[in-house]
Amino acid sequence: MSFQLLVRIVVATLLCSRVWAQTSQPKSDADFSPHEVRMIQVEPGLRLEVLDWGGTGRSLILLAGMGDTAHAFDTFARKLRTNYHVYGITRRGFGASGKPEFVTANYSATRLGDDVIAVISALHINRPILAGHSLAGEELSDIGFHHPDVVAGLIYLDAGYTYALYDQAHGQVLLDGLKLREMLSQLVPGNIPTDVPKSLNEIEEQLKLLEREIAEYRSELPPTPTGSGQRAAPPPYLYAIFSGFENFPTIHCPALVIFAEPHDFGPTQDYSASRAAFEARDLRITEYQAKAFESQVPSAHVIRIPHASHYVYRSHEQRVLQEIDAFISSLPN
């Protein structure tokens, strides 16, 4: 099995709850709220769409989930600008922002995090609070791990999953596979490490870890669909983004981490055993990640909101606003 195929399968299954929940929600990209639109250059030839809803108080920057744009926050931002100066950034590859080639180097965690830092610098914003939904947890953690002094705090809106924090207690097959790929590059002539026996031992241990995770993963695979129809090709950005994940062991700044637990996936006419297994598995993975933040990130305040949707800032808007206000008021000026 090719590594690219492994990534695609893992994305489609292990992370399907968040991807399915996000793409099944109606998009809110209509440009109906009052704001100023700027196109900010983050590297030569590449500009990102940045929305400025105005407001008074500390600067708060909103980052949307995968497939969404900053306009996903049009309604929510209007509620926030009473107490904060609110901005939103549309990630590269989406909406009106520039769309470089969909390859890993252009969409890695480092690259996406650096884009956010470039916007902060261009707008001359001093230590803003970043709030991100879903996949935006990747940008939050990249900044919180590598550049914590750039921000005053981070807010994860059902965004604390594999891309945001590596669960050291349970591991994760995609991240451990990415790590193994990096380790195997040490066997290439010209890149061989000084201590070859040590390197080989580490590779062997990583192989054993991944073998155990793959066995568990295989046992949870859904039945192979029957029929002759071809599976639809994944969107081109999917591999570029997911193959660029980083293994974040912690973050180094204050964080409010909100989980929808359990997720509300909406009504179903046929509550089958497979649906029940899917929901149980999603609950287990979500709790793993919540506990990982509690144990690995001393500065994290973890909130679980029962029966919220993946778009927790929509399904439980008032609760999320209250938690944001309480968190930001606790931060030093």
Rank of each mutant, 00 (worst) to 15 (best):
F102C: 11
A64I: 01
G171N: 03
I214Q: 13
E43F: 05
A277R: 11
F76I: 04
L60Q: 01
S330K: 06
V103P: 07
T13D: 12
D325W: 02
A122V: 06
V257R: 00
F145P: 07
A109T: 08
S219T: 11
L62I: 03
L140D: 01
A136Y: 03
L130I: 04
I285Y: 09
T226A: 15
D264N: 09
H133F: 01
D176M: 02
N333E: 02
G177H: 04
R181H: 10
R111V: 10
H316N: 13
P128R: 00
N247H: 15
A215E: 13
R8I: 12
T162S: 15
L157D: 05
A233I: 12
P225R: 04
R38P: 10
L63T: 02
E202H: 12
K27A: 13
H316A: 09
S295N: 14
L62C: 06
S28G: 12
F242E: 15
H307K: 13
G227C: 08
P235T: 14
D74V: 08
P44I: 08
V196L: 14
F259K: 05
A77R: 04
V116K: 00
S59W: 00
F3W: 08
G171R: 03
E323W: 01
A64N: 09
Q289C: 11
G229E: 14
F145C: 06
G244K: 05
Y166I: 03
G190N: 07
Q322M: 08
M39L: 10
L175Y: 03
I303D: 00
P306R: 03
Y288N: 15
I89L: 00
T56K: 13
L238Y: 07
L48F: 00
R218Q: 14
G229A: 15
I143H: 02
S199N: 13
I258L: 02
Y288E: 15
M66D: 14
L46H: 09
H124E: 01
G54Q: 05
E213M: 09
H170Y: 10
E43H: 08
F327G: 04
Y161V: 11
I214Y: 12
F73V: 05
A164V: 00
G93Y: 00
H71S: 06
G160A: 06
S185A: 14
R281P: 12
L221C: 06
H252S: 12
L209D: 09
E261K: 09
V257S: 01
